[in-house]
Every structure is written in structure tokens, then in C-alpha cells.
Design a protein around this nucleic acid. Structure first.
Lengths: 251, 251
DNA sequence: CGAGGTCTTGACGCAGATCAAAGTCAGTGG
DNA sequence: CCACTGACTTTGATCTGCGTCAAGACCTCG
């Protein structure tokens, strides 16, 4: 019976070293001494209590997702969190079964909200960076709503591939290649599609030569122009995610 | 040919006085002397330049929407802005034809982003309030994505009605009544539905006695329990929007 | 090699989009 | 007061993209 919706429990597994590319100068550097380092594994869930004693997480490496499950519905992935992103319970609505989940081995800093806010008052650079960062995350949330609400299945998938390619991809021989940290079911939940439909769309893209799969968790966008043509919001995505990538590559 | 998608130009019209219920103490009070008061009319669009010389808007009364139109697609409403909300270009993705549009006569404060940030550094209360406010707006954006992506048409409409009833509604004889500032086409664009389908759903709700229309722009949610049962995210919506309403009524 | 997962692919049905036409309402002028 | 106009809404008929179900392929690990 359980075929697609398999269990998502964390399985013990070797913690690979996560390469943290230094961003010079690190806008969160000042937080380092007050923060606790965490290294959740793939598929590990981080609980958080909405309300008092709130916790702030800062993503330092890897990839996390914000997920929720409305009663009687199935899981949705509501946001992807990349290195540099900030998370706290107040950022997401009080949905049941809301959680933060690592989709790749990752590294993050955890600190009490009160400590975080106290430091904001002191360090004005931190505050400036925070408002940029939050504006960016908010813009991405709005973008996601625009994609989910406005585009067809094929366009959503293309948009997602562009996002990943721009954000975590590296140029290679014939296109842009990147790790695919999400399973088909994860991607489907992120794009508000169903895994079967998603699979069909991916096959179509492979058939047309836009996409190539290398092994089970690496993908190559082969025909970049065609892929861009496939998504009405390609330019906005590149603008939103390109800056972070530039910083990552240059830094 | 143009039937549903009629022109949305601002038509000259009397500026009705917008009742601003005082929030004591006003967390944005300190900004008053540096801000410019604006009173856009219904359907008036506020342009903004993404990039340099950015502007911050603070909603004081009325209702605005953030809209965008991906190339080749039709208009989407991506967010509703209520009194107390903050808007700046960096909060939304660089989509073409992105704009801020008043759906009701409203009142807002405008000030340069640099001024705003300078004041943040001085007034620590302002900073504290800002981070709460932005967290709330971000949570609403995520919520909207969850609704658009996860719920059926009927559930989306029920969720929308609950949001409005909780946010701008007042208890009355037989239920909760509220002004409906959005046209059918607006609501459809907000819920990622099409106006015909939306109309059918509304008729069904009226038929079942959950909803009552009084005139063309006033609605009454008659059977609150049934309406809540219709939306899987009713509780989260009430939690998100209820607080603001309590403040409005009590203040 | 077999077992348990994940992914693909086909057949089919339905929710919602699209098209078209008629109904409602506010304002305007005869 | 009523007919006219133009914007908006409702409703019916039809179409289609995507969801659902089921069978099989494939990949990983014991």
C-alpha cells in the first residue's frame, strides 16, 4: 500500500563533511560565539515550539525544507532553506505537523530568539544584513506562491530546475550540473504536483534533451536556453537566486 | 471580447474618509513626522522602482494587493496588505508587471528606505516591532502558498472567506458580516482559480446556507462552524489573523 | 539472489478551465 | 418612470491537464 509515500524517518548514515565555502566577511560572524552548532543528517526533523522560548536557526550549509501537512491532506514542502537563510517558528503559519527537515546533510547554528534579538540591538551591521536577508526570503516565498498558483506542471518543473541549477549548480562539459537532494516525492510536494505526473514531465524533458540524469541524485540541465524558454518566470528566478550563487562562487 | 478581464484603471471618485481605528500605542508613531501621507483611490496602482532609491510603504488603513503578471499568463494577486503591514520592493520577486494596487480607498505612509533604516537604528522599539511584523507577513505568505498549493477550489474559497471574516468582519445578527472589497475576478486571481469556477463555488456555498450576499459588496458568513469545517486550515488562519482583529476591535 | 524501496508508464476519471450566452445591477438620459 | 449601456456575474456545455490506481521496471542493500 505504501508505495510513493514511504516513511521519511532518519536513517543512521555517515556524516559526510559539508563544504562550507567562506563568505568574506561573514555577516553572521558575530553570532558564532553565542550559537550552538548542529549537524542534522539527511531526513532528520528539527522540532520547534511556536510560542515562548523560541529558537532561531541560521543555515550554514546543506539544504533544509519547511514542511507542513494540513489535516486530511498530504505533506507539502513550503520553502527551501539555503545556506545563509534564517528560520524561526514565527516565520511559518501555525499549521499542524509543521516542521523543519534536512534534505541533505547540513550544518546550522541555533540560538535562543532572545539572544538573537539582544545582539541585533548591539550590532547594527547584523540588523542591516538581517533586513536584506529576510526581504530576500520573503520574496522567494512570494515567488513560490506565484509558481504554484500560476504555472502549469511543466512550467513549474522547469522553474524548479532553474532554481536549483542557478543556486547549487556548477557549469560542466555540456550544461549545468547539480546534486539533486530531493526525491521525486519531495519535488512533487514542493511543486504541488503528484509524483506520477512529475515523473511523466521529467521523462518528457529528458526526451527533448533539456535534462539529463546522471545516477539517481545528480542532474544536468543540458539546453539552458530551452529550459529558460520553458519557464515564464526564468528571469525573476535567476535574479533572485543568482546573487547568492555569485557570492558563493566568488567568496 | 473583454468580458471578465475588464480594465482596472482608477476612476475618479469621492475620497471617502477612511476610519483609522487608533492602535494604542502606535508602534509606528515615531515614523509619522518623516513620512508622507498618501490616499490612493480604489484601483489606483502604486508604482515602485526596484533597486536604488527604494521606498517603504506602511499601510495605515484600507486594503491593498500585491499583483504580478508572468509573461503570457494572466494577473495574479500574491498578497493582501492590511493596516499595519509594511511594503517595499525588495519583499517581492522581480516579476514583470509587479505592482501594488489599492482595492479599497486606503491610507498609507511613504518614506525613503534610507530614512526608514536610519530610524530603525535609533528606535529599538521600532526594530522589535518590525521583526514581529515581518515574521507575521512572511507567515501569511507561506500560508497563502499552502492554500493555493494544497487545497481544492471549495476549500480555498472557504479559507479566503474565513480570512476576511476574521480580519475585517464584525459580528452581526446572524453571523459575521464584512465588506467585500475585491471583485470576483480579483478573488479568482488571489486564489488561483478562474472567475467562472469561483462563481460556481460561491453559488454552492450560498445554496448550502453558509454564505449570504447583501448587495454587491457585502457578505455574511452565516454558518461559522460549517464554514470552518470547509477549510482544513481554518484554525491556522484564525490564529494568524485573529490577533490583528483583536487589536483593531479593542484598540 | 530476493526483498523493500523508488521510479516509470499506461488506462481512466474528475475538478476545474474554457467558451458562449444570458442574467443582474448602477448609472444615465429620454 | 422606463429603456439603454457597459461592467460584472452567473450558469450551462464541453474539453483537458492532472490526479488516481495499478502493474511493472529498476536500483540498493542485506
Amino acid at each position: 500500500m505504501i508505495t510513493h509515500r514511504a516513511s521519511r524517518r532518519a536513517r543512521p548514515q555517515l556524516v559526510k563533511s559539508v563544504p562550507i565555502i567562506p563568505v568574506a566577511p561573514d555577516p553572521f560572524g558575530a553570532l558564532r560565539p553565542r550559537a550552538t552548532l548542529m549537524r542534522p543528517r539527511r531526513h532528520q526533523q528539527l522540532s520547534f515550539t511556536s510560542g515562548v522560548a523560541e529558537t532561531v536557526y541560521i543555515v550554514r550549509g546543506g539544504l533544509l525544507v519547511v514542511q507542513a501537512t494540513p489535516p486530511g491532506k498530504h505533506r507539502q514542502l513550503l520553502a527551501l532553506l539555503y545556506p545563509g537563510d534564517i528560520f524561526r517558528a514565527a516565520f511559518i503559519p501555525p499549521l499542524p505537523a509543521a516542521a523543519l527537515s534536512a534534505v541533505a546533510a547540513c550544518e546550522l547554528w541555533r540560538l535562543p530568539a532572545t539572544t538573537f534579538e539582544a545582539m541585533l540591538a548591539d550590532e547594527s551591521d547584523l540588523g542591516r544584513h538581517l533586513s536584506c536577508q529576510l526581504a530576500d526570503q520573503h520574496a522567494r516565498a512570494i515567488m513560490h506562491a506565484a509558481i504554484i498558483g500560476g504555472l502549469s506542471g511543466e512550467e513549474r518543473v522547469a522553474s524548479f530546475l532553474i532554481e536549483l541549477a542557478v543556486r547549487i549548480g556548477t557549469p560542466c562539459a555540456n550544461g549545468t550540473s547539480f546534486d539533486m537532494p530531493l526525491s521525486r516525492a519531495d519535488i512533487a510536494d514542493y511543486l504541488a504536483l503528484n509524483p506520477d505526473t512529475l515523473s511523466r514531465i521529467m521523462s518528457r524533458l529528458k526526451g527533448r534533451g533539456l535534462l539529463l540524469q546522471m545516477g539517481h541524485n545528480r542532474a544536468v540541465v543540458q539546453d539552458w536556453d530551452a529550459m529558460r524558454a520553458q519557464s515564464p518566470v526564468a528571469d525573476a528566478l535567476i535574479a533572485l537566486h543568482g546573487k547568492a550563487n555569485a557570492r558563493r562562487v566568488v567568496g
